[in-house]
Simulated scan of single mutants.
Amino acid sequence: MRQNISDSERIGRGVLGIWLIVIAVGALRARRRTVAAIAGIAGIGLIQNAVTGFCGGNWLFNIDSTKE
């Protein structure tokens, strides 16, 4: 897979992903399982984007922010 997100976007997605994981843990402790599941899945997806530098949504819509 070719990278299609810029370095600054990777940092933003990583920070947001970690924040969503923290929200998921807090929601799980408060027994709000639906919120925990949604936040956890979204957080894991954003962290995966940050680590690999590839976003399937950007690829689908032919967006490449590395060229900017």
Rank of each mutant, 00 (worst) to 15 (best):
W19C: 07
N62Y: 07
T34F: 15
T52K: 11
G17K: 04
L46H: 05
I38H: 06
D64Y: 09
M1G: 13
L20E: 00
R2D: 08
R10T: 02
A39D: 06
V35N: 03
A30W: 07
W19E: 00
S8L: 10
A39H: 07
C55S: 14
R2L: 10
L28F: 10
V25W: 13
I63D: 04
V35K: 05
R29L: 13
R32V: 01
D7W: 14
I23M: 15
R32M: 10
I23N: 12
T52G: 06
R33Q: 11
T66Q: 10
F54D: 03
G56L: 13
A36Y: 10
V25L: 15
L46R: 00
W19H: 00
R13Q: 03
A36P: 07
E9F: 05
S65E: 14
L28Y: 07
R13L: 09
G45W: 09
V25F: 15
F61I: 01
I47P: 02
M1R: 11
A36W: 09
W19Y: 02
I47A: 05
G43T: 00
A30D: 15
I5D: 04
G53Y: 14
L16W: 00
I47C: 11
I47Y: 03
C55R: 07
I11A: 10
D7I: 09
I44N: 07
S8V: 04
A24D: 02
T34C: 14
I47S: 04
L28A: 11
T66Y: 12
I47Q: 02
I38V: 14
M1C: 08
R13K: 13
A36D: 06
G40P: 02
R2C: 04
N49Y: 08
R31L: 11
I63H: 08
I11Q: 06
G12Q: 11
I11H: 03
G26A: 04
A42S: 14
G56M: 11
K67D: 00
A30M: 11
A36F: 11
G17N: 02
F61S: 04
A27R: 03
G57A: 14
L16C: 01
E68M: 13
R10S: 05
T34E: 15
L46G: 01
R10L: 04
I5F: 10
E68Y: 10
I18T: 06
R29T: 03
E68A: 14
L20G: 01
N49M: 12
N49A: 13
G12N: 07
R31F: 13
I23W: 09
G26K: 03
T34V: 15
A42C: 15
L20V: 01
A36I: 08
A27C: 13
L60G: 02
R10M: 06
G53N: 14
E9R: 05
T52A: 06
W59G: 11
I38G: 05
C55L: 12
L46W: 01
I23E: 13
W59C: 08
V22L: 11
L20M: 12
A50P: 03
A37H: 14
T52R: 09
A42M: 14
I23D: 09
S65C: 09
L28P: 00
A27T: 01
A39M: 10
I21A: 11
